[in-house]
């Protein structure tokens, strides 16, 4: 078992954990969404890195029918669509934050909870 071959997976796990930390430790809702985005992007990078072939080319076939080594196109396809879906869902989350700000006057999660707890039942 060679340890060094996994260095980049560890780098992505570090990035992922930074995003996770932002998500669970910050109370500001916009900050939480950013943490989620960092988490998401590091998952994307992880996926793409699994499709890499050493000495490979981007998977675009040459005109003259040469046989080249190509990277795996399948993760590319999955992540390509996931990025666009990700930004759309981020937009929904941000719209929710805007509505929370209008209803509570704050976007700090604990203030929202405090107000919720003290509402007359």
């Amino acid at each position: 078992m060679n340890i060094v071959v996994h260095y980049n997976y560890w780098a992505f796990i570090f990035l992922m954990m930074v995003g996770f930390y932002i998500l669970i430790s910050r109370r500001n809702l916009v900050k939480k969404i950013m943490g989620l985005n960092i988490f998401q992007t590091s998952v994307f990078i992880f996926f793409i890195s699994m499709g890499v072939v050493k000495g490979g080319q981007p998977p675009i076939l040459p005109d003259d029918g040469r046989q080249l080594i190509f990277s795996n196109p399948l993760p590319h396809v999955l992540i390509l669509t996931a990025i666009v879906v990700g930004v759309s869902t981020t937009a929904v989350a941000l719209a929710l934050v805007v509505r929370i700000k209008e209803a509570y006057g704050t976007i700090e999660g604990d203030e929202v909870t405090a107000m919720d707890n003290e509402l007359p039942a």
Binding site: I48, V53, P75, H76, L80, V84, V87
Partner: peptide, 19 residues
């Protein structure tokens, strides 16, 4: 760098631009 040119394209346009 990881040969995913289409993905890089999308990420640059979406992540750095629109979002």
């Amino acid at each position: 760098v990881m040969d995913a040119v289409d993905v890089a394209f999308t990420e640059a346009a979406v992540g750095a631009g629109v979002s």
